[in-house]
Design a binder for these strands. Structure first.
Length: 293
DNA sequence: CCGCGGGCCTGAGAGC
DNA sequence: TGCTCTCAGGCCCGCG
């Protein structure tokens, strides 16, 4: 499910309940998600204060007062919800009183703020891991991650450089978390559409010296910035599983221009093309063959 | 290094 | 109604 905008939405939703609060207790309702939990997982959480809640790529990272970091990945179907103290009303119609358990609620954090934070993940492709912040550079899950697409280092020059020696399609390059970290299938399709670049184009053509590499790469960077920022503003995209922590739906799915729109008319004024779908690296690519070159 | 197929899981939706 | 099949916001591995 979650790409960068969904993870960022979740991060913001969890901040109020978790930042500055102590994890009074943590419950594991099963012994594994994608991987078995570490033996000392619960012990390393209980009684620790969450000093900050950050995000790196599609990972949530909670800094703990012990010097540990709790790393959380939502996989395809992971979601968090925050239950307020004593079943107090939260906005929206998805409020569920404290204590109500649902299928696939796997991890529960009881916070000193009074909030209960529940991690639910039907498919269990998500995972959590604790490591020492001092050793963050050695953490295999984070090693090799490319720049944050909304960070300062990510610009046209950098993207062109990262693609220069790639023998892959542009789409595969953007899905490669070593090139840029946080994009997934939806936002890659949408960004390529906005940049009017073909998903089949060879990634290395972004860095062709005599073409207009910076123009292409620049357009793509701008498109990535725009689509991610708009999606974050909309609370992410809710197709199946993604919810904000309040239970409310994200809204960006209503703004998709190609994803899931096979057979529909291209949204570009005057284009007249039709959105097509094909499989690339085992995943559906949606695009307009007429305006994406 | 690359693409591909398969695997990890469950659930929703389509078609019969 | 119920069955079977396909597909899904991620990511990893082994193969050729």
């Amino acid at each position: 499910m979650p790409e960068l905008p969904e993870v960022e939405t979740v991060r913001r939703g969890l901040q109020g309940a978790m930042e500055g609060a102590k994890i009074v207790s943590a419950e594991l309702r099963r012994k594994d998600l994608r991987f078995p939990f570490q033996k000392d997982f619960v012990a390393r959480l209980q009684g620790k204060t969450v000093t900050g809640l950050g995000r790196r790529a599609k990972y949530l990272m909670a800094d703990l007062s012990s010097g540990d970091v709790l790393l959380m990945h939502l996989g395809m179907s992971g979601s968090f919800r925050v239950l307020s103290e004593g079943g107090k009303k939260t906005p929206g119609k998805f409020h569920h009183p404290r204590g109500e358990q649902r299928a696939h609620d796997h991890v529960v954090f009881h916070m000193s703020s009074g909030a209960t934070v529940v991690f639910n993940d039907p498919r269990r492709f998500g995972y959590m891991k604790i490591f020492s912040r001092a050793k963050i550079g050695d953490e295999p899950l984070l090693q090799g991650l490319g720049p944050e697409p909304l960070g300062n280092e990510f610009d046209a020059k950098m993207l062109a450089r990262a693609c220069r020696n790639k023998k892959t399609s542009l789409k595969a390059a953007l899905l490669d978390q070593r090139v840029v970290a946080g994009l997934g299938n939806i936002y890659v399709c949408e960004a390529l559409y906005r940049a009017q670049l073909s998903p089949r184009r060879l990634a290395a053509t972004l860095s062709t010296k005599k073409g207009t590499p910076t123009e292409h790469a620049g357009r793509l960077v701008d498109a990535i910035h725009a689509v991610l920022n708009e999606a974050i503003k909309a609370g992410g995209s809710s197709l199946r599983d993604h919810r904000q922590t309040s239970g409310e739906l994200g809204l960006f799915q209503h703004s998709f221009q190609v994803y899931g729109r096979e057979g529909k008319k291209c949204a570009t004024p005057g284009c007249g093309g039709v959105v097509r779908r094909f499989t690339q690296n085992g995943r559906s690519t949606f695009w307009c063959p007429k305006c994406q070159k």
